[in-house]
Design a binder for these strands. Structure first.
Length: 384
DNA sequence: CACGTTACGGTTGAA
DNA sequence: CATTCAACCGTAACG
């Protein structure tokens, strides 16, 4: 079918000339073991999957240090579009986490909604689905974003209310708004939450922007930002107190949500282990230097993964793009170096830096300080 | 050259 | 259990 129905309107090049992996992994065989592809910058990525939180974090951190997006892009070997997107999101939501992937939107057909539909139907058996929809809106049961589609209502009528069965279980009457509650179950992590979303505390990142709270989106209702609730994977980091992590771990274990542990703490508990994992993830790249060593891995838990970034790092990591120009000097410090995200975060917390951070992409004039001071990253601002 | 935007191919997970 | 669908992803390329 149409590839991207909703999105496009203009067709850029029509056919994508080249895909990311110039050399080996031919796109034609996606599933097998092509878990890593190499982009034009030599960075490794997995098509369809979010970048590791560590990298996302790094992007934001570097930006806060005054590094220009283009330099961040080069340094981390992440496409500038991606850098741009992540930074933009961070500015807007305060979170570096990717949006919730997959699944469905929050169910609009909550018991309460179904109950109302049933009521409407019982009250007027001849009522049309669209009328029900209107009434849901009119009665405030739903708002325009939550209201079930006409087809959904039809289905509900057919499947759940078909025979006009007597009302079922007492649905908690929750106005649509409640649908969007944060379900975070997290038994494991006692949410520091209420405490106070202070900048810098658990969130780790110095929000140079206030934490995303409250309605702020301008995009589609379901988009990431608005995604507070159902996107269980989102929002842990920045400003939000999410704290509960999906047991699935299918996502990124520590780095992200643990939120860059503050100063001196063991990173929440998983740190060590998680870090270990990180260590195994070598980045082909150069610029990352010490960073590179611990970055991504965290994201890809070896064994538990269904198959994705599994097992051998080697498989995932292209040993380096053939065309890879530089041979990083920083290449590898022993793997022991890993500076957990926490360090970086701490670095940020330095007083004084704050002033600078607020800088959006453009103004930045100069990098205030050589990152090297922080973690030995050298920024080739002049590379080109 | 920098960077915002978007087509595209991809993954994910609820329905 | 397999399929469908709609969300998100990052890259590459356009502008």
């Amino acid at each position: 079918m149409a590839p991207s129905p909703s999105r496009g309107h203009h067709d850029r090049s029509g056919a994508i000339p080249i895909r990311a992996s110039p050399c080996h992994a031919v796109p034609s065989r996606p599933a097998e073991h092509t878990y890593g592809e190499v982009n034009q910058l030599g960075g490794v990525f997995v098509n369809g999957r979010p970048l590791p939180n560590a990298i996302r974090l790094r992007i934001v951190e570097l930006a806060q240090l005054g590094i220009r997006p283009c330099d961040i892009s080069r340094q981390l070997r992440v496409s500038h579009g991606c850098v741009s997107k992540i930074l933009a999101r961070y500015h807007e939501t305060g979170s570096i986490l990717p949006g919730a992937i997959g699944g469905s939107k929050p169910r609009v057909t909550t018991p309460a909604v179904v109950k109302h539909i049933r009521d409407y139907k019982q009250g007027d058996p001849g009522i049309f689905a669209w009328e029900i929809r209107d009434r849901l809106l009119a009665d405030g049961v739903c708002d325009k974003y939550n209201v079930p589609s006409v087809s959904s209502i039809s289905r509900i009528l057919r499947n759940k209310i078909g025979p006009l069965a007597p009302a079922g279980p007492p649905p908690a009457a929750l106005p649509c708004a409640h649908i969007y509650q944060y379900p975070y179950p997290g038994p494991a992590a006692p949410p520091p939450a209420k405490a106070g979303p202070h900048p810098g505390d658990t969130s780790g990142l110095p929000p140079w922007r206030c934490p995303a709270r409250g309605p702020r989106r301008t995009r589609s209702p379901t988009s990431w930002a608005s995604a507070p609730s159902w996107s269980r994977r989102v929002g842990a980091l920045a400003g939000t107190e999410g704290t509960t992590y999906p047991p699935k771990m299918e996502e990124w274990p520590s780095v992200s949500r643990s939120g860059f542990p503050g100063p001196g703490q063991t990173v929440n508990g998983l740190d060590k282990a998680a870090m270990d994992g990180d260590i195994k993830y070598p980045q082909p790249g150069a610029g990352l230097s010490s960073m590179g060593t611990f970055l991504p891995a965290c994201a890809y838990p070896p064994s538990s993964q269904p198959g994705v970034y599994g097992g051998s790092p080697g498989a995932y990591i292209a040993s380096g793009p053939p065309w890879q120009p530089q041979g990083t000097p920083l290449g590898h410090h022993g793997h022991g170096v890993t500076v957990p995200g926490g360090d970086l975060a701490m670095a940020f917390k330095q007083p004084g830096r704050e002033g600078v951070d607020r800088k959006p992409p453009s103004p930045v004039g100069k990098a205030p300080e050589p990152l090297s001071a922080i973690h030995g990253i050298s920024i080739p601002t002049s590379s080109s």
